[in-house]
């Protein structure tokens, strides 16, 4: 970043020096002493700083330079107010942390599809009777293997269609 800017500066300095030299020559040609000519040329030329500044603004790196200056200024200001800086950094950190936590929760719960083939075909079954869960735990307690049956009421809910099936008897339709 520094190279082009430095080069641009040197270039401009040589360019302005050349202009000043030619101007001095012109005054010498008009019959002034070299010393006088030099003074007159300088006077006509004015100060170089504003010219350099303006040319700097025209350089292709002007935007980068001004961004760097802004960043430097910002860092200086931050260093001068450590309490405010700490508070700002902390609240940013907490804010970003909380946000990413919530987003990752929403991502897993709501956005990501279930890790099964054709998740749109899944249905919810709302068990309404006490029988079936009891039946399951009874099976577990008694180490029942294979077929068993239980009766219960359940609600079969597939997408928008929701229909109740009363008193279903489940007979080994589910592998437990």
């Amino acid at each position: 970043m520094r190279m082009p800017r430095q080069q641009h500066n040197d270039d401009l300095e040589r360019e302005l020096a050349h202009h000043l030299a030619e101007l001095t020559d012109e005054y010498v040609r008009q019959g002034h002493t070299p010393k006088e000519a030099r003074r007159m040329a300088k006077q006509q030329f004015g100060t170089e700083a504003p010219i350099k500044d303006q040319c700097q603004d025209e350089s292709p790196w002007a935007w980068l330079q001004s961004i760097l200056q802004d960043i430097q200024f910002g860092l200086r200001q931050l260093r001068q107010a450590p309490v405010v800086t700490t508070a700002a950094v902390l609240s940013l950190a907490l804010g970003i942390g909380a946000n990413s936590a919530i987003i990752s929760l929403i991502d897993t719960v709501l956005w990501r599809s279930l890790p099964v083939p054709a998740p749109q075909q899944l249905s919810f079954i709302h068990w309404q009777g006490p029988d079936f869960p009891n039946h399951l735990s009874w099976r577990r307690r008694k180490h029942v293997q294979g077929r068993s049956s239980a009766s219960c009421g359940f609600l079969f809910d597939a997408g928008n269609r929701q229909y109740a099936e009363g008193d279903g008897r489940v007979r080994d339709h589910f592998r437990v």
């Binding site: 401009l12 360019e15 302005l16 202009h19 030329f45 004015g46 504003p50 010219i51 303006q54 040319c55 603004d57 025209e58 350089s59």
Partner: peptide, 9 residues
């Protein structure tokens, strides 16, 4: 000069 060089650049 103050207009010339900025304009050229």
């Amino acid at each position: 000069q103050g207009s010339l060089y900025p304009a050229l650049h």
